Simulated scan of single mutants.
Amino acid sequence: MQCVEDFDFEAMNSTDLLSRLSSSRRLRVRLIRNSERGTLLQASGLLWLSSHVLTMTATVRDAVCPALEGHGALVPLQSDDGDFWMFIPDVWDALNEAGSCLTRFSSGRVIYVSRYDFHPDRLVGRAVFRIPQLPKGPLFCTPPVVEALSGESGVTFKQVWQPPALNEQIPKT
Rank of each mutant, 00 (worst) to 15 (best):
C101H: 14
K158D: 09
P132N: 08
F140P: 03
F157V: 00
P120Y: 10
E36V: 01
R37N: 10
C101M: 14
N167R: 02
T15M: 11
L49Q: 06
M56V: 10
G82P: 07
P138G: 05
D90R: 06
G72F: 02
D16H: 13
S107Q: 08
E5V: 11
H52S: 08
S44P: 07
Y112L: 14
L166K: 06
A148N: 03
T103N: 05
S150W: 11
P76H: 03
L17E: 01
C3Q: 10
L95P: 06
D80G: 08
V110K: 00
R33L: 12
R109E: 13
R104Q: 11
I131M: 05
L139C: 06
A43I: 02
R28Q: 15
R26L: 15
D81C: 12
C101L: 15
S100P: 06
P76W: 04
N13T: 10
T103P: 00
L68T: 01
C141G: 01
I170F: 08
L41D: 04
L54F: 00
D117K: 09
E5T: 12
Q78C: 09
R126E: 13
D16Q: 10
G45P: 02
F7M: 04
I111Y: 07
I111R: 12
E69C: 01
R20N: 06
F9D: 09
A58H: 15
P143V: 12
V145P: 00
F84V: 04
V145R: 00
R37C: 06
F140E: 14
A73E: 07
P120C: 08
I131H: 02
P120Q: 12
G38C: 11
L31R: 14
I131L: 08
C65L: 14
H119W: 14
G137C: 09
E152W: 05
F7Y: 14
D62K: 15
Q78H: 13
F105Q: 09
N34T: 12
T55N: 03
L123F: 05
L47C: 12
C3T: 10
A148D: 05
N34E: 15
Q159G: 03
L68D: 00
V4P: 01
V75S: 02
I111K: 14
W48C: 08
V113C: 14
D93P: 01
L68F: 05
W92A: 05
G45K: 04
S100L: 10
G82H: 03
E5A: 13
M1T: 06
S22R: 11
P89S: 03
F129G: 00
Y112Q: 14
Q133N: 05
R37H: 11
P135N: 03
R26G: 13
L68E: 00
W48V: 08
R115P: 01
L74Q: 05
L123Q: 10
P135W: 04
G45A: 01
V64I: 12
A127H: 11
Y116Q: 02
M1H: 06
F87P: 00
A165P: 02
L74K: 03
S51A: 11
P171Y: 04
Y112A: 13
P66R: 12
R130K: 11
L134N: 00
S100N: 07
L18V: 09
C3A: 15
W161D: 04
C101W: 15
E147L: 15
A127S: 13
V155E: 13
H52E: 02
D121I: 13
C141V: 01
N34S: 12
T55P: 02
D16P: 02
R109I: 05
